[in-house]
Amino acid sequence: MARVSQQHLDARRRQILDGAARCFARNGFHATSMQDVLSEVGLSAGAVYRYFRSKDELIEAIADEVFDVVRGAFTEAARVDPPPTPDVLIGRVLRRVLYDHVEGADGQAFARLVIQVWTETLRNERLAAVLDEGYGTLRSAWVQLVEAYRAHGWMSDEADADHVARTLIATAQGFITQQALFGNVSVDVLESGLRAVMSMERAPGRNAG
């Protein structure tokens, strides 16, 4: 029997994850069965169970991959000097997560999948641990970027780095929620709004208070 290459195994795993993500985005986790996933990807039960033993394992793998994408974007940003501003970085991450991550899923569908992942953490301890680790990683990455912004004189030294980190993460989460609930929300709108907020301190002729 010919040996299966790692490239083939990786492609098959990707096929299963993308198909499962499309199913979950359309119908939700609990209304989607493993048979639905098998039909979506056109594979036998044995082929799918070789990679994922249960629907929960599929859900956890999808959640973990999303954080890998986000972590990769921040790692890339940390190598750039000067680092990208929040509007640019958040826009880049959201485009990668919502539109480029799963083949065949539109932005609203994948946003709905993300919301489901967040909700599922209330009952799934392993998934909650994945989410908690990912959130901690994001906070640490933003703290490092805030320190870089300070070093370039773009942000006050008095700003609490963790507070800024939590706020910017909340901004991205809020956008994902809007996209899931209402759709047709362009990332360009978020970038434009963030730039406007970021410009407030520099606006001439305005008095505080």
Rank of each mutant, 00 (worst) to 15 (best):
H152I: 01
G104V: 00
D81T: 15
L38F: 10
A196G: 07
V185R: 14
R22S: 05
G46H: 05
T85H: 11
Y135S: 11
A21C: 09
N207Q: 15
A20I: 01
V70F: 04
E40Q: 15
D160P: 06
S44P: 00
E60L: 08
A128E: 06
E191I: 08
V80D: 07
A208G: 12
A128L: 09
K55Q: 08
D100L: 12
L131V: 10
A2C: 06
E147M: 01
F29C: 02
L94I: 09
R12N: 11
E133S: 11
Q144W: 03
T75G: 14
G91P: 05
L190K: 03
D106R: 03
S156Y: 04
E103Q: 12
E103A: 15
M1F: 05
Y135F: 14
V164D: 00
A129L: 09
L194Q: 07
R92F: 02
V114P: 07
G91T: 06
A180F: 06
G107L: 04
L138R: 11
R53V: 00
W154H: 10
E60D: 10
S54K: 02
L98W: 00
V164S: 03
A20Q: 06
S39D: 14
T121C: 13
R139T: 13
S192R: 15
R123D: 11
E125V: 13
M198W: 14
V146I: 15
A161I: 00
A73H: 13
A180G: 05
A45W: 06
E158A: 14
Y49H: 15
A111W: 06
D68F: 08
R96I: 04
T119V: 11
L131T: 07
A31V: 07
R14L: 09
I90V: 15
M200K: 09
I16C: 03
G19Q: 02
A25Q: 05
A165P: 06
E60W: 00
Q116T: 15
A109R: 05
Q7P: 04
M198F: 13
A47E: 10
E76H: 12
G183L: 07
G28V: 02
L168S: 04
A148M: 05
G153C: 06
E191H: 02
E65W: 09
R92A: 09
L190R: 01
L94A: 10
D106S: 07
V117W: 02
A111M: 10
A141W: 08
T177G: 09
Y49A: 05
V97K: 01
A148L: 04
S44F: 06
A25H: 02
A25T: 03
R53C: 00
T85E: 14
S199R: 12
T171P: 01
I115A: 13
L194G: 02
A170R: 11
T75I: 01
R139Q: 12
M1D: 08
R92G: 01
S156T: 13
H101L: 14
V187P: 09
A172F: 00
E40W: 05
P84V: 02
D106N: 14
S140R: 13
L145H: 12
N207L: 15
V37C: 02
A105C: 12
